[in-house]
Design a protein around this nucleic acid. Structure first.
Lengths: 176, 176
DNA sequence: CCTGAATATGTCACCAAGTGCCAAGCTTGG
DNA sequence: CCAAGCTTGGCACTTGGTGACATATTCAGG
């Protein structure tokens, strides 16, 4: 059901635009009522961005589960490299988000909530609040840069390689 | 008028909460109608965050006006250090934003628009799109970290010093 | 096969944010 | 004094989002 709604939403958003699509349109296209839509997604934007918090939790868990001796930046790099493809999905969706302010805003908000989770995991690994904050925000910045650079290349760049490059370029000097 | 509305909005938000305050309340408190409120601010959130795009433009201009030989990171550091106090204002406002998701979301969105402006200034200084993107996103991350750390200390830390520390810690390795 | 509880859905009424439209007021310069 | 122009208020409207209640569907146990 969620998947059905998400699929219809993507269709309608791409062909008609986000603002020109009403929640009722999406719901009806999926064969249900507006009220039921809001039982699957808390906001209209989440029809596209709904899986993010779930992956955020898994990312935070994986970070906590890593060997304690590992450096924080390597840890973030490794875990996020594995999830990058799952966060920055199809180019169509990325383009839509990039060109639609409300979607972009909601994405940033969810990224920020994810960041808060990751901060917890990092402080659990012994970092100070400032360090954890700094590391998490840098990692988020890295992913964002990867997504935009990938968009700039029209989707032709190799994302894992790009991720490695960006993480290397952005590595904070103070992290082990 | 804008200032009057902003002041009333801050009062009402702090004493009653953001969600519990209606735009009509703010407008009436400032002696005008809801319709006129929206002639001064495009959204309810902007009653608190309205000055940001103006300072973003000035920041971008100052970056463009800096000596061309200067390193990009020093440039960002210098300009943003000067504006930091103007971006992260009173602790009351910061706390309110931090504890109110819609305000936080709108702030992130505006920060992102500001980032886009700064990217233009940086590419004008000879950086590649990827580099400019990376530098701007790192600088935004730095300011964000400063604000949160300052909040953590309850407003007692020295912000310029903190800004210097964070910019030093986050300096991307690849920038001159 | 029946029944009763849990869960999913629809309908309706409602609130608040935001916008377009038009009429009325106020301010200017001539 | 008057006319052009900007500011404001009021009104109607759309849409996102929520609460309440009724109905349908599912599914377990007797």
């Amino acid at each position: 059901m969620r998947a059905e709604l998400a699929a219809r939403a993507l269709e309608l958003f791409t062909e008609r635009g986000f603002d020109e699509t009403t929640v009722d349109d999406i719901a009806r296209a999926a064969g249900m009522s507006k009220r039921s839509f809001f039982r699957y997604f808390p906001t209209k934007e989440d029809a596209l961005l709904g899986e993010l918090e779930a992956t955020a939790e898994r990312v935070a868990q994986e970070i906590s589960a890593r060997p304690p001796g590992e450096g924080a930046w390597e840890c973030l790099h490794t875990v996020l490299r594995a999830w990058e493809a799952h966060i920055n999905t199809q180019i169509e969706v990325l383009r839509l988000i990039e060109s639609t302010p409300p979607l972009r805003a909601r994405l940033l908000q969810k990224r920020d909530e994810a960041r808060a989770l990751i901060v917890e995991s990092l402080t659990g690994r012994g970092l100070s609040p400032l360090e954890a904050d700094l590391a998490s925000v840098a990692a988020g910045a890295a992913l964002d840069t990867v997504a935009r650079e990938w968009l700039r290349t029209g989707g032709s760049a190799d994302r894992p390689t790009l991720t490695d490059q960006v993480f290397a370029m952005l590595r904070p000097a103070f992290l082990s």
